[in-house]
């Protein structure tokens, strides 16, 4: 079995604790995601998927439960330790790209490596490699305002890959793009998954987009209501029983 990258055990998240309007958003979520998986987490607005994405991305801590990210228990870390973990372990891709304006594509991709203290030469070499991987090598001098939405997102994906993170966490990465451009961006994720063996977690409200991934976890009312991996495991188990029965 591949290494477990994300292990969540009975994660609960409450807001306004102790107040009359106390709100429980996540109702005890347990899930495992393994190295090399391409998983989508699907849910409607208000299902709790954004809160779950904040937990997975170490952007917030659970109220109860344990979360091991590549072996580290996130729920016990302070803000500074959380930020270190985010920078080392997670490559973020957002719906709104969030590139640095007036700064060219190459510098944008180099940025996370600057935090990590990678020497200048090595930084630009790796940034160029990553821009090539996402098909943006010949645009490396372009600034965000000179790029289309799809191109910006490809640069953002290259940036997410910069420090070779344990997971790529993509929050509605095609949400601001038209269908055709959205497909092109999804193809980049497929490439990273197949060629580079990246673990990718895609957060989306779109079942259609989710159907492109090998495993779909569906969230509703703060709970996991289905996980295609479990179905597959059960089916595989059933087949085995039949075989042994013969």
């Amino acid at each position: 079995m591949a290494k477990t990258i994300i292990q969540m055990i009975n994660i609960i998240k409450r807001y306004y604790i102790g107040q009359p309007n106390e709100l429980q958003i996540l109702n005890g979520i347990s899930l495992d995601i393994h190295e090399g998986e391409f998983v989508s987490i699907v849910g409607a607005s208000g299902s709790g998927k954004s809160t779950l994405m904040n937990m997975i991305g170490a952007l917030d801590r659970p109220t109860e439960g344990e979360y091991f990210l590549d072996g580290t228990d996130i729920s016990r870390l302070n803000d500074k330790q959380l930020s270190n973990i985010r920078n080392q372990k997670i490559g973020f891709v957002f719906q709104t790209f969030n590139l640095i304006s007036r700064t060219n594509a190459l510098k944008n991709v180099e940025l996370p490596m600057m935090y990590a203290g990678v020497p200048r030469k090595e930084r630009s070499r790796r940034a160029m490699e990553l821009l090539e991987l996402v098909g943006m090598k010949d645009r490396y001098t372009h600034q965000p305002n000179e790029l289309s939405g799809g191109q910006k997102q490809r640069v953002a994906i290259a940036r997410a890959m910069a420090n070779d993170p344990a997971i790529i966490l993509a929050d509605e990465p095609t949400g601001a793009l038209d269908t055709k451009t959205g497909h092109l961006v999804m193809n980049i994720f497929h490439k990273l998954h197949k060629q580079e063996g990246k673990t990718i977690v895609l957060i989306t409200h779109s079942p259609e987009l989710a159907s492109e991934t090998e495993r779909i976890i569906t969230i509703s009312d703060g709970s996991v209501i289905s996980d295609t991996l479990e179905n597959t495991a059960e089916n595989a188990g059933a087949e085995n029983t039949e075989v042994s029965g013969e």
């Binding site: 500074k80 930020s83 985010r86 640095i100």
Partner: peptide, 19 residues
């Protein structure tokens, strides 16, 4: 504000220093 959502206050300010 155009801040980067996964970076802390300190890291967002540092972005300017790197450039």
């Amino acid at each position: 504000y155009n801040l980067i959502p996964n970076l802390t206050v300190k890291e967002n300010i540092e972005v300017g220093a790197y450039l």
